[in-house]
Design a protein around this nucleic acid. Structure first.
Lengths: 145, 145
DNA sequence: TCATTAAAAGACCTTTTTATCTGTTTTAAT
DNA sequence: ATTAAAACAGATAAAAAGGTCTTTTAATGA
């Protein structure tokens, strides 16, 4: 399971992407409003994302967050998750055994690895752009009304 | 991902099952030693498990933890996880949208649900007994040497 | 130029999770 | 009865996660 930080990050990026497609650059207040996340905490998460170059920001009037030239289709969820959870997230043991491996497996190793790999494959496929497309088409939402 | 509490709980139960098969009733000190978990914290987790009836304990000299008559094959990981993470663990949205459902899905809903259901199926199949069997056969370990 | 706007940065606070410590009660063997 | 082993309970401490607030910096338009 993901931390709230990562979840907010994904929803925020998707919202930015949708908003950009409508020709706008949302600020953190609008973003947090539209994805139901705490304002200041969201701002902090966005800072981290810009520092890592996943999204751009512009200061001053008319500023806000944005992707340059549909860069959002090259950002998959794997990238976002890695930033906040660390790469080890995708190699962790299912019952917390340190150094669990094919060599010295915990009794849950094989079975869990299959699921974890499925998950990794999925988050590598899904991009901010692919998710935002669904929202734009009205097939999905980012906030419960 | 599971909390450490849940991970320790699973490893502890598996160890108790293995130990029981060898005709013994381990105490919390032995258990925490054999699964590399903090002693007192493990004791507390074991208390919770006995309170929920997943395992039995005997006080006094010669006491310790045990399953009655191979009851351990009726305890699946789903039960253990539910106790510590709550049932909602298996219906949670992949990106934290409150009330995410087929009706009002987040853009990640479908894809994530598949993985989550696979995981649920797996933890319902796997039991303390099935895991401990592997350890007993030497196919798996609970502690890194 | 200057007031306004908005993000960046960092200090700070709160809650939850993880872990430890201390002590009490129960029980069984001797 | 005594003693030792072990469960059980509660308080506390440390660390991590989650969240807020204030100050600084930069861009913009009037």
């Amino acid at each position: 399971m993901l931390s709230k930080t990562t979840e907010y990050a994904i929803r925020a990026l998707v919202y930015i992407s949708v908003s950009n497609k409508n020709g706008k650059r949302p600020g953190f207040k609008e973003i947090s409003e539209e994805i139901s996340s705490p304002e200041q905490f969201t701002a902090k998460i966005l800072q981290t994302l810009t520092r890592h170059g996943l999204v751009n920001s512009a200061r001053g009037r008319g500023g806000g967050f944005f992707f340059d030239e549909q860069h959002s289709d090259s950002i998959n969820l794997y990238k976002v998750i890695s930033i906040f959870e660390g790469k080890k997230y995708f190699s962790r043991c299912g019952i917390g055994l340190q150094g669990c491996s094919a060599d010295q497996p915990c009794p849950f190793h094989c079975e869990f690895e299959r699921i974890r790999n499925d998950y990794e494959r999925l988050v590598r496929e899904e991009t901010i752009a692919s998710l935002s497309e669904k929202v734009k088409l009205g097939e999905a939402i980012l906030k419960r009304k």
